[in-house]
Design a protein around this nucleic acid. Sequence first.
DNA 1: AAAATTACGGACCGATCGGTCCGATCGTGG
DNA 2: CCACGATCGGACCGATCGGTCCGTAATTTT
Lengths: 192, 192
Amino acid sequence: MLWIGLFLMARTEDPSGRQRILAVAAELFYVRGVRAVGMAEVIQAAGCGKNMLYRHFPGKSALVAAYLGRAREEREAATSAALTGEPREQLVALVTEVAYRVRGSAYRGCAFRKYLAEFPSPGDDDEATAVARAYLRDTRAQVSELVAAAGGPPQLGDRLWLLIDSLYSGTGPDPSVAVEWARELVAAGRPD
Amino acid sequence: MLWIGLFLMARTEDPSGRQRILAVAAELFYVRGVRAVGMAEVIQAAGCGKNMLYRHFPGKSALVAAYLGRAREEREAATSAALTGEPREQLVALVTEVAYRVRGSAYRGCAFRKYLAEFPSPGDDDEATAVARAYLRDTRAQVSELVAAAGGPPQLGDRLWLLIDSLYSGTGPDPSVAVEWARELVAAGRPD
DNA sequence: AAAATTACGGACCGATCGGTCCGATCGTGG
DNA sequence: CCACGATCGGACCGATCGGTCCGTAATTTT
């Protein structure tokens, strides 16, 4: 009975353990900034004891790295869900999905870009910085590969990445401007 | 003799006073982040005593606000220097100037966007936040006005602002992509 | 019911923060 | 040569940080 319970918790929600702490910490880090949120505040918001948190995460840097890793998983899930249809449609869908997310009321900027802005000179062993940089690099590579699959010129990838980058920045114009522009761009690149 | 000296210092450089402290602090805040730089480090880098700094700036928040105000002045000077010729040329020159700055080896991202990312939930009386927001708002308005003066549609302003925004983000493609795109955009909007 | 495992949360530690105050020092004017 | 003013920089303060340890209470296993 105990083992079945542990098994189910591990497979499903783990509502009072690691996942719960991570969800609470992620929200705080994202909204208020990583440096501005102390461990004590995470503990209080999670409603757990100090032992609980420090057993799952050896320190704040590990918690922050897990926060960005979680953000990456969420982004990848949303992105892959939007990528159906032929490559050209996928390119537009990619921009549209980002625009949709940016319009959401909970959007406070790109978590990875914000982290890199907050820690521009990290130690060489900063795992969170590695996660953030890898995400940006991989996402951009994904666009390039998609453009190559669609038979478009590399320049198309550059310009689409520029549009996505502007969307994420949070200070750009209305997201629909980027979406409409991406549509024109992909349509113009069509050889037929 | 004493008065002449004071007069010259006030008119020219003030090498051991406010301007020097501000220059040192600005470099530190910009490269390493505002929160990551303590007042003690600013004082040591400026080579002055604590009294010196706290006489010119009542506290860190005032120093940060002055840092962003200084950054704004520098940006406005560089921008206005680039704005010669007819409105359409000015639009391209605006993007080109930003691209030039972004390519510089000392570029570490837009100071205003970085500050807003570092302090997403400031107090209502945070002067630095007000400076940063005002800069972004005014710069965007400047683009819109320039487009209007050039007789272009508002959409042109949106798209040019998008390009500029992407340039500043620091994670976009090569700056030349935005410059070339801006050239095409302005040329295509030409009625003749 | 007794025992053992778990978790909450306060006490505590050293380090660092922004900021104040004051003694020591140096250059200048009388 | 002395006295004055300005400046450097260390001592110090309260607050907060990340992190450790442990007393106590609750829950579960036997």
